[in-house]
Computed example of a mutant assay.
Amino acid sequence: MRLLELTEPVMLTISVNDYAMEAQRLMAQQQSGWIVVLEGLQMIGVVFAQELGALPPATLNDLDVREYLRPFPLTVSSDVSIEEAKRQLIRSGLDFMAVMENNQPIGILTLASLEQKRLQQRQAG
């Protein structure tokens, strides 16, 4: 299995200048747990639905996406092994990383997706 098979591709994007309410609306509409934040054409980070969902809905109209942006502090090339990517995540103490190809983020790898795959492999065999 390749790392790209566990990577969630970038499907949703939002401008860093938009409001948190718009990010939440887009994620709900697409049933996504996260949205990539753009500054111009550059991907600069991610906002997670779980974090916005913990806020009172009325406050989301006044909050910029920037306030909930989690930058990509950890990146990994799409050609590294799954084991190496997991080691890097665990060592960093983070729960997600950007998967890069040609110096651009192409998706997100989460500890949850790695654990889910491990459980599926255990159950299968």
Rank of each mutant, 00 (worst) to 15 (best):
R66I: 03
G53S: 15
L41N: 05
R70L: 11
Q121D: 15
S113V: 12
L4A: 12
L3K: 08
A49R: 13
V80G: 09
M27Q: 05
T59N: 12
N103V: 04
P71A: 00
L94T: 04
T75N: 04
N102V: 08
Q42F: 02
Q104S: 11
L114G: 07
A124L: 14
E51H: 07
I44S: 07
P105T: 00
L52C: 09
A54S: 12
Q116T: 11
L94Y: 05
L41G: 00
L12W: 01
I108F: 01
I14R: 03
Q123W: 15
I90N: 09
P71S: 02
W34Y: 10
I35R: 01
D62T: 11
V47E: 11
L38G: 03
L4E: 13
R91D: 14
V99S: 10
V76Q: 02
E115M: 13
E8P: 00
Q88M: 13
V99G: 07
L4C: 07
L89W: 09
I106L: 05
L3M: 08
E67G: 06
L74G: 03
A20R: 10
I35T: 02
Q30P: 03
P57N: 10
M97T: 02
E67S: 13
L109K: 00
F72N: 02
L89S: 01
L26D: 06
Q88G: 04
G125R: 11
R2L: 11
A124H: 12
Q88K: 14
M97G: 00
G93W: 07
G93R: 04
M11E: 15
L52F: 00
V46W: 03
A23F: 09
L3E: 05
Y68I: 00
M97K: 01
A112T: 09
T110W: 09
V16C: 06
L69G: 05
R91H: 11
E8F: 07
M21P: 00
F48C: 14
Q120P: 04
F48G: 08
